[in-house]
Design a protein around this nucleic acid. Structure first.
Length: 116
DNA sequence: TTTCTGACTCGAA
DNA sequence: CTTCGAGCCAGAA
């Protein structure tokens, strides 16, 4: 029966995602899978993106989160698709054709950077 | 309660 | 090299 109460409170999962994204240094980016894995829920990369959707209005730099290919998949979910590119370029990230150049160079792994 | 979808990822053809 | 399919978790209808 009722088991888990839905809506009792925002799941910690979302907060954890926001926290990690917030820790992303300026000029760096990370992938959904990296965050999901850091949270211990590897495979729920899609969930991370879902959390990002709610991050609108929060202090979460969702523009620093891209897919594994370095492609700005979530750009369409921003107020303006161009906003994501501008933000990234504004931070020193080179974006070409909706894709992050030197993706591996600017990649920020929470598991490593946070010291796992 | 069940069912579906999703800003993903990886492996295989 | 590109393209396709299946897996995965969690929330919303």
């Amino acid at each position: 029966m009722m088991s888990k109460k839905s809506g009792d409170r925002k799941s910690n999962f979302f907060e954890d995602v926001y926290e990690v994204v917030r820790l992303i240094p300026k000029g760096r980016i990370t992938s959904y899978g990296a965050i999901a894995k850091f949270l211990g829920t590897a495979g729920s990369a899609r969930m991370v993106g879902w959390a990002m959707n709610q991050s609108h209005g929060l202090d979460v730099p969702a523009h620093r989160v891209v897919n594994r290919n370095g492609l700005l998949t979530g750009k369409h979910h921003f107020e303006d698709p161009k906003r994501m590119e501008e933000l990234l370029e504004s931070e020193g990230v080179v974006v070409i054709n909706d894709k992050v150049e030197n993706y591996e160079s600017v990649f920020w792994d929470p598991m490593i950077e946070l010291g796992m």
